[in-house]
Amino acid sequence: MIQVALDRLTKEECISITEQTYNHIDYIEIGTGVIKEYGMDIIREFRHRFPYKKIVADMKTCDAGKDETVQALEAGADITTVMGFAHDQTILDSIKIAKELNKRVLVDLLEVPVERFQRLKELGVELVSAHIGKDTQVQAERYSLERYKSLSDDFTVFVAGGISPESVQRFEKLKPDVFIVGGYITSAANPGKASATIKEVIPKT
């Protein structure tokens, strides 16, 4: 499955790209930068405009798990993100609220040490994002994915980090359920065509 990551874009660009890619994507991610620019209103607008797609609010919550999770999910997101390095209580509070609302939490493993993965499982985490950050993607070929190789034994895995048709094979070894695709689609002259192309090369799940 494909999650289009809408970030560092205007609201109008986000809407246009989603409309162009709609038939080829499964999840719409409203990126952290977009949320910082437009707040919860953009989640509400996307819920109204695209009622049949799963919406991920990339809140990157580090603290105040209960409050930020309520904000994102009550605004219309189906999934909100919490950082894996956040305090255990933050993660527990976020999961508790999500379950009460019949929604979900995706835990971002950006810069999270391998030793913490087992603890995340113990906390009840189900969805994780194996994430190579924007600032390190220039070194992506040297950034080992080995640390993530066993995640699929315990979690539903999302992968993110400069994904393109050329890099899909590198991420396949993690057996991901969802490929998060940002710049390859959002920077394309024809986002609809780009989303169709990437859909052809990712494994069918």
Rank of each mutant, 00 (worst) to 15 (best):
47 R>Q: 07
204 K>N: 12
88 D>N: 14
63 D>E: 15
117 F>A: 11
95 I>P: 02
83 M>Y: 13
102 N>M: 05
54 K>A: 02
37 E>M: 08
6 L>P: 07
112 V>C: 14
193 K>V: 09
91 I>F: 11
74 E>S: 11
161 G>E: 08
110 L>S: 04
166 E>H: 05
63 D>N: 12
125 V>M: 11
55 I>S: 07
139 Q>T: 09
183 G>M: 02
35 I>M: 13
157 V>P: 01
173 K>D: 04
61 T>D: 03
59 M>S: 10
122 E>W: 03
85 F>I: 15
43 I>A: 05
173 K>C: 13
107 V>W: 07
133 G>F: 06
111 E>F: 12
15 I>K: 04
75 A>N: 03
162 G>L: 08
150 S>N: 15
25 I>C: 01
92 L>W: 01
155 F>H: 10
73 L>T: 10
192 G>S: 11
15 I>R: 06
113 P>I: 06
101 L>E: 12
15 I>C: 07
205 T>C: 11
144 S>A: 14
178 V>C: 09
121 K>A: 11
185 I>T: 12
11 K>Y: 10
111 E>Y: 13
19 E>P: 00
24 H>S: 13
126 E>Q: 14
61 T>W: 02
1 M>P: 05
133 G>N: 05
21 T>L: 03
185 I>P: 00
137 Q>S: 02
107 V>C: 10
84 G>D: 09
43 I>K: 05
178 V>L: 10
88 D>K: 13
31 G>I: 09
134 K>I: 13
69 T>D: 00
115 E>D: 11
30 I>K: 04
132 I>Y: 07
39 G>P: 01
69 T>N: 04
5 A>M: 09
33 G>C: 06
42 I>V: 15
195 S>I: 00
85 F>Y: 11
175 K>A: 13
120 L>R: 01
192 G>T: 05
108 D>Q: 06
123 L>E: 07
39 G>Q: 00
98 A>Y: 01
150 S>R: 08
147 R>K: 15
123 L>K: 03
125 V>H: 12
186 T>N: 07
2 I>T: 11
52 Y>I: 01
44 R>W: 04
117 F>N: 09
112 V>F: 12
115 E>L: 11
121 K>S: 10
2 I>M: 11
32 T>E: 06
52 Y>E: 08
86 A>W: 00
78 D>S: 06
187 S>P: 00
183 G>F: 00
23 N>E: 15
165 P>H: 12
118 Q>D: 14
190 N>F: 12
84 G>N: 06
80 T>G: 03
113 P>T: 08
97 I>G: 02
181 V>C: 08
167 S>K: 05
75 A>Q: 01
78 D>A: 00
74 E>F: 02
149 K>D: 05
111 E>W: 15
189 A>P: 02
98 A>R: 05
69 T>G: 01
141 E>S: 12
62 C>E: 03
190 N>T: 12
203 P>D: 12
83 M>F: 15
